[in-house]
Amino acid sequence: MAALTDNTVRTTSRRIIGDEMIVFILMTAVLAIVPMTGIYPYFVMQGLCFALLACAFNLLLGYGGLLSFGHAMFLGTAGYVCAHALKVWGFPPELGIVAGVVAAALLSIVTGVVAIRRQGIYFAMITLALAQLLYFIYLQTPFTHGEDGIQGVPQGKMFGVLDLSHPDTLYYVVLGGFLFGFLAIYRAINSPFGEVLKAIRENEQRAISLGYKTDQYKLLAYILSGTLAGLAGSLKVLVAQNASLTDVHWTMSGEIVLMTLVGGLGTVFGPVAGAFAIIAMQQYLAGFGQWVTVIQGVIFVVCVLTFRRGVVGEIAHYFKRSL
């Protein structure tokens, strides 16, 4: 793991806060003016959902050193529960989002307790197995409608006033959700808990010898990551108005890993950049059909071979900054 996480070289903490603040303000400003630019908002909203998902994944791998290969289960579970709550139970959107997030949180507690005892490849394999298990459950249970998925999910009025069927309103609600999740992750990374988490990633044996029960910290990181991935899943339902098996499939878990690595593992903004890069690729290369997967594969190989720190990681390294 050490080789993968060498993005985190820190110099003095004052300057870092400055850099990160500037980039955050720039990012927020750019995202805030999107509806006025004529860029297809659906594309950006989808990007925001994946960006949040990749950020949540990065909290676990980049800062906790744990490679989950089943993160799609949180995205998909939150999506199904949120879609079902909106369509069948007639929940207002804010409660639908909460229902999805709570479902993902519960799922992360259960799967976390099972998976966290193992490390490295074994942890990845257990999370993959659990995600596959869920995939087959969702394929069979009636409420998910199997191959069809839950279609035509009503968007409704958030808090009774914000009409989400209006594209601009929906955009700002999704942006708000993304920023909330992004800042929550940023805070977790820079909290007393985050310090312990980094210490465990850097040298778990030493952390144990200092009296830390490291499994408990890793479990908390896993639960936070799963819960926020669930937020991404709920938001995605409001955007796409459907929940389908695609979001719980293992290829989705793979894509999350890809987004995070391309953007820069263990960097604050890397997963955002990575998610948009991958989404843009799928969008603009759609004409190549199945070849998109091949192109993605090639990009991934090139990324690992030549700029292992990811796009943002390489930039940060070049300027000796932390981003």
Binding site: R10, R187, S191, P192, E195, G211, L224
Partner: peptide
């Protein structure tokens, strides 16, 4: 990748609580 000060602080912080506080600023 922690500074010398942070290294020592990680040991100090365990005894004094707050180590699970992910919502607080460091």
């Amino acid at each position: 990748h922690l500074t010398a000060l942070e290294n020592v602080r990680v040991a100090l912080q365990r005894q004094h609580g707050h180590s699970f506080d992910f919502w607080r600023s460091k």
